[in-house]
Design a protein around this nucleic acid. Structure first.
Lengths: 220, 220
DNA sequence: AAAGTCAGGATTGGATACAATCACGACATG
DNA sequence: CATGTCGTGATTGTATCCAATCCTGACTTT
């Protein structure tokens, strides 16, 4: 339809990813290929390829002849993911900070302002994107594309639940506070401090999501 | 054909992976879908899904409307991959060693014997599998499935070149020596020593592959 | 002669149609 | 009443066919 549409199935991948991430396709449900393909207005072929990609990212799981199911995490899974994030984010930050200049920091600050704006507007989807853009602007500055990719995968894996974290008012205040802490440490060029702020930030997120997972699912 | 054949396209994925890993499909070449599908005796659909999976693993790269190309690594890519491996393998080992018992070590030793046997037989495919089984028996013992998966991805990414490392005689001797070192450290329960041996092992591999990449490709 | 343009062929992207497999429920049987 | 078996419908897996895009080479134009 649009001249700029590249390989229509990337759109399917992106859309499917956001629908899983935002909880529109909740964890545990089976992905009915035909119905979904129809609702997207495409055939099953590009949808299946999208599902294969998302399987590689861990967002869905595949059982032969049974189909695709949205990944469901337990507390141990969550803990492992955050642990790995801790390891890799520290590496990324340590690599990124020393080579960061004035204008880099300012670019990141503008991203942070976008996060705040999204908080005010109340658009969760927007908030999600802006938050990720802010953090990955730092990670990406390390210039290690595979490290960034692994981090993306780990973030994707918990995005299913992260939306919940954003929904509560006081969480957002805490997030804003921690983001400013990260930025200040960034500006002073103190890599260790950035790592520290990021660790605290991560820990709060993990605790909130962990509480939610434990509480919201009595059995199974 | 066989009663036990699950979802014929997994076979395609496995076969394609080994053909890339063993160098039968060398880095840089384009994967011609129709020809390959025909040679595998399947349609293009399962082949494409296999390629999507391999793209997720980093073995091939995808350019819209151009096709899939076997990933070609430069020295920086290689260095990044080995650096990330260092980080994650150390974590896995540190987690795995303390909970390792007598029989676990013996199981790993038998895997190591399989590696030696493969070296003697000269079967590179077999050697490749056995080597991976040995190392991942240790990593997997950490009980962190996502960590194992990330490590698999990193290993996959360099498998394209690893076969070259195995092909030289004296390399194999060094490998055998280092493997025994790892096993001995494992048996004594000294996690730090295991990490150390593994680091040396990794470094030799990186140096060899790095030399090969630099030397074998004058331009481009 | 050099550079831009355009057709033809080749290759990939996607849709439809058919085959294989599985889940679920009814029924028979102990 | 519990349990095993079988058939039917639904869902996934694969092949074939058509459309969209790209690469290559020759031709035109300056």
């Amino acid at each position: 339809m649009n001249a700029k549409t590249p390989t229509a199935q990337e759109q399917v991948t992106a859309r499917l990813r956001t629908e899983i991430v935002t909880g529109l396709l909740p964890p545990g449900v089976q992905v009915r290929q035909e119905a979904l393909a129809a609702s997207y207005g495409v055939s099953r072929v590009p949808l299946r390829e999208a599902l294969k990609i998302l399987e590689g990212e861990g967002l869905v799981q595949y059982y032969p002849h049974r189909g695709f199911f949205v990944t469901e995490l337990n507390v141990e899974d969550l803990h492992e993911i955050y642990r790995l994030r801790g390891l890799l984010e520290a590496e990324a930050i340590a690599q990124a900070v020393p080579t960061m200049h004035e204008d880099d920091v300012e670019a990141i600050e503008s991203l942070l302002n976008a996060v705040d704006a999204a908080v005010l507007s109340g658009d969760l989807q927007q908030l999600h994107q802006a938050n990720r853009a802010f953090h990955f602007a730092i990670f990406d500055h390390a210039g290690l594309p595979r490290l960034s990719r692994l981090l993306h995968q780990l973030w994707d894996a918990t995005d299913v639940y992260r939306g919940l974290y954003f929904q509560e008012e006081d969480h957002r205040d805490l997030i804003a506070h921690e983001h400013r802490g990260i930025l200040a440490a960034l500006r002073s060029g103190d890599a260790a401090a950035v790592v520290e702020w990021q660790a605290g930030h991560r820990q709060h997120s993990e605790q909130a999501v962990s509480r939610w997972i434990s509480g919201a699912r009595p059995e199974s």
